[in-house]
Amino acid sequence: MTRITAADVLLSVQDLQVHFPRPGAGWGRPAEVVKAVDGVSFEIRRGSTLAVVGESGSGKTTTALAVMRLSPLTAGHVRLGDTDLGALNGEALRFARRRMQIIFQDPFSSLNPRERAGATVRAPLDLMNVGTPAERSARVDELFEAVGLRPEQQHLFPHQFSGGQRQRINIARALATHPELVVCDEPVSALDIAIRAQILNLLVRLQRQLGLTYLFISHDMAVVEHICDEIAVMYLGQIVERAPRRAFFARPLHPYSVALMSAVPTVDGGRRRAAQRIKLSGDPPSPINPPAGCRFAGRCPVAEPACVAELPPLREVAPGHWVRCRRVDVVDGVPTVPLQMPAA
């Protein structure tokens, strides 16, 4: 695997923390702190896609919002190329937003029901004062064609579109300012299965044509396998495994990753795989008071007493393959798998 150089990296996130204070539980008690994201680091190469996956409450969407500066940063660094996004405020941050845009999960609530589709796509150009009025109109025409919508549909309101068409409008709006980074926050989870494939194929095509870089948030492993170059698995605010797509889907290493993969249905053996799914007991610990050791230890089928004593580091056990698990050893250059995937 070719090592990533600094020039190859568009987005660099180092030790990101996003903590939300809550009022104290009672008189005289200290305020509680929800550690939604607690020490996350990753890099994304230009023109590639990093998928961040995990169950609800793992912190993946909060990570995406923090990267976009739509959520406050408690600590850590977020760099877009040579720009330190965490240090920007006011007009400087507003100008930097031309380089990064987001596609939200819900294609229904993320559009203004009283605004025509063409005006919605044009809005970022007007707000950021990009180009002349004539150039903005031409850009809207170009974007509608790029996402597969007809020019006359610019005059329609959101309720006159299907769910897939609304998400195409959201994609066009995100691309209006020629961004380098596009954050995709579960962009197909609210769509029908057939429409999901169309939107995913559109995102892949646009990435190839425009050289886009994606941070793709999802809980659907099948979707992720279709679109990502690398994958990061999050659990309770931390990354527990990060790897290239082929290496991960061929052989996940962390027990939590194996449990996630065991839940993915297969075309030829879906029923049998569902019966052999690795079922985790209990619930994730509270992000207000996470355990001192491995945060997955309380639900892990192969945990040892030492797992709860100390938090394992995220270490590289194979080229580009990082895992946060003390049970993963490297024998003759090959990492071991403490929890085996059930046979299909």
Rank of each mutant, 00 (worst) to 15 (best):
E55H: 00
G59A: 13
T61W: 03
T61E: 13
T62A: 14
T63W: 02
A66L: 14
V67A: 08
V67M: 07
R69F: 06
R69G: 09
R69W: 08
L70N: 08
S71Y: 14
L73C: 11
L73W: 02
G76P: 03
H77D: 12
R79P: 01
L80D: 05
L80T: 05
L80H: 09
D82R: 13
D84T: 09
D84Y: 12
G86W: 06
A87R: 10
G90P: 04
E91T: 13
E91F: 01
A92P: 07
R94A: 09
A96I: 01
R99I: 00
M100A: 05
Q101A: 14
I103G: 02
F104C: 07
Q105S: 08
P107A: 02
P107D: 05
F108I: 09
S109T: 15
S109A: 15
S109L: 06
S110Y: 10
S110M: 06
R114N: 07
R114S: 14
R114C: 00
E115P: 00
R116H: 04
A119E: 15
A119S: 12
V121M: 03
R122T: 00
A123W: 00
D126S: 03
N129R: 15
V130Y: 01
V130I: 15
V130Q: 06
V130E: 06
G131Q: 11
G131V: 05
T132K: 05
T132W: 00
P133E: 01
P133T: 12
A134Q: 14
A134L: 12
E135D: 11
R136N: 05
R139F: 05
V140R: 09
D141W: 02
D141M: 07
E142V: 02
E142W: 05
E145A: 15
V147A: 09
V147F: 13
G148D: 11
L149H: 13
L149S: 10
R150M: 11
E152K: 10
Q154F: 03
Q154K: 15
L156S: 12
L156T: 09
F157T: 11
H159A: 13
S162H: 07
S162C: 11
G164L: 10
G164P: 02
Q165S: 05
R166T: 02
Q167N: 07
R168C: 02
R168H: 02
N170T: 04
N170L: 14
A172K: 09
A172L: 10
A172W: 12
L175F: 12
L175N: 11
A176G: 06
A176P: 04
A176R: 03
T177C: 15
H178Y: 13
H178Q: 13
H178D: 15
H178F: 04
P179T: 11
P179M: 12
V183F: 10
